[in-house]
Design a protein around this nucleic acid. Structure first.
Lengths: 319, 319
DNA sequence: ATTAAATACGTAATTAGTTACACAATATTA
DNA sequence: TAATATTGTGTAACTAATTACGTATTTAAT
């Protein structure tokens, strides 16, 4: 199928399906070949019962990895052909206890040769191939168990999007975004305070002129995240990280992380060694991010903000 | 799934199906993730049209390896969503010429990022696996193209059955089978002749006492094939291969071949170097078998049988 | 002893494909 | 040129699975 070579690996699902179809198609013919009146789809159920034990519908379903309605249907078909015997559970009246009938046991004997031949035929193919399909499937099952394809794709998406995020210095054109993004989260969790208005309404006068800096995260030229470092005049720290805000619609693009890194880089380039911040513990993702950036909880500093209930700091020289 | 480890490779069909299901399940989620209103099953069709060309239903079907009704259905669904435009063929009124609409082209641009992410996610899995699923599938496709699973299983069956065929020396208890098996084929193609009755009614007197031998093929202790070598008193040959008969119900078990080999072995062990036989060209499988055994067509020898129209011989020393 | 929750199962509806069939348009052949 | 074969398509019926849901029974909790 030339198509698959042009499409690439993302068509692996379709390709797998076609191989599967091809094999199951032949399987039906193979049963005919051995003159055993059994449908290929019965096989896993039949096999699960072949040791002679009594099993329940859901028991079989779990064992072979089908849904229980599928097993239920197959059992009723096999029952009609007289291959299995159903019996209502003795101790538990909900259960449908199923086992091979005498005819079923007979079938099981007859079918052994077929098993051997099919097994050998598949071994023959395996021997001719240099890549082991069986092992490859096993590995894929394992890897998908550990992390689903969906999660892997999500991670790729995040990575790609974070690559196309640009962190730039503040310009007057970003004034609106700087205020809006901050106002959005502050007013949804707390309420805007005096100090907020001062900084957000006049960032140039309040932050930049006092030796602070503002960074803006652009995604496709749209400002979706902001963050500031404020020069601290006197005390144990050089800068305060503040006014970090990321648009909810940009979640999962790593923007917070990128802004945080850029802010610390900026502080470092300005000769800072200790950076301070204030936050609130109900903002769990934010606290988490600060941890990842290297901030540690400290205590005993006064804050102009009501909402502040945690203080953190990082020593850039120890990073 | 522990089940598959106990069942062995013959469950490869079921196992493939489960992996396929798992991947296509995630595929649906992935489309949602990118907020593209497209069903995964549309993908191959969409992709086939993505270069902008106009294509026919069957054209697409052949390209992507689906049946045409499947494509027909998908196209009508995509049409409803405004992704493609259908147009009755201009030159050929049967054709339904399909191409992406403007909206479809737009989708195609939007979906490129998704393609990249999925491709990368799959590459990531591949990189973590030591067995290459993609290549393994490719190899299986190729090997099944060359010889289907069905044919391979048939060959295994034949081999296994021929292994359980035993060739033994004649005993009086096989007299009936010796006559019946020969009478069956002779009278269905020709008619029984004087010489036939003599040999079949009294094999001991007519064949064994004159230095000949009879071999019997047993399958599950049932005589399903016979064959004789007759001592030739004077002339260019030592033995004549004759009265070879295999039950029709034992076809495909290699019995003819095994009997032929055993007969020549017997002749060789008796010091013979040249073996002769007579047959009729309408018995194509038989002639074929004789060829495989090393017999070559010769001419100019008289035969007591009306039905004989070909003579063959083999020189055991040249084998 | 009730009540609520969980379990086992079957039925119905859905899904993504298939094959079978019918019909029209075109191509081939006598 | 008429008859026949082939091709392109759509519709219908089938297949082998699924999810959704209802019912009966058992187990756990109050």
């Amino acid at each position: 199928m030339n198509f698959f070579n042009t499409v690439g690996k993302m068509a692996i699902g379709s390709r797998l399906r076609m191989l599967t179809d091809r094999i199951t198609e032949d399987a039906a013919e193979i049963y005919k070949l051995y003159k055993i009146d059994m449908q290929p789809k019965w096989f896993p159920v039949f096999y699960a019962l072949s040791q002679g034990e009594e099993k329940t519908i859901t028991g079989i379903a779990n064992e072979i990895g089908h849904s229980h309605p599928s097993v239920s249907k197959i059992i009723s078909e096999m029952s009609k052909k007289g291959l299995v015997i159903e019996k209502k559970g003795n101790a538990d009246g909900r259960r449908n206890m199923v086992r091979l009938s005498e005819k079923g046991v007979e079938f099981n004997l007859k079918i052994q040769d077929q098993y051997k031949d099919v097994e050998n035929a598949i071994e023959e193919i395996s021997a001719q191939a240099t890549n082991d399909l069986w092992k490859a499937i096993e590995e894929w099952e394992f890897l998908l168990e550990q992390k689903t394809l969906l999660r892997r794709v999500k991670e790729q998406q995040k990575q790609r999007e974070s690559r196309s995020v640009k962190i730039v210095d503040y310009k007057p054109q970003y004034a609106k975004a700087f205020k809006a993004l901050n106002e959005e989260w502050i007013s949804s969790y707390f309420k805007m305070e005096e100090a907020d208005y001062k900084a957000l309404d006049d960032p140039e006068g309040y932050i930049l002129k006092n030796g602070g800096h503002i960074l803006v995260a652009l995604y496709e030229d749209e400002p979706l995240g902001v963050c500031a470092i404020l020069k601290i005049q006197n005390g144990d720290f050089d800068y305060e990280l503040a006014k970090m805000a990321v648009s909810p619609k940009a979640q999962g693009k790593n923007i917070g992380w990128l802004l945080g890194l850029a802010a610390l880089d900026k502080a470092r380039s300005l000769g800072a060694s200790k950076v301070y911040l204030e936050s609130n513990t109900i903002l769990k993702p934010a606290i988490n991010l600060y941890h990842k950036l290297g901030f540690k909880k400290i205590a005993g500093y006064p804050s102009p903000y009501e909402r502040s209930n945690i203080q953190m700091a990082v020593d850039l020289n120890l990073q």
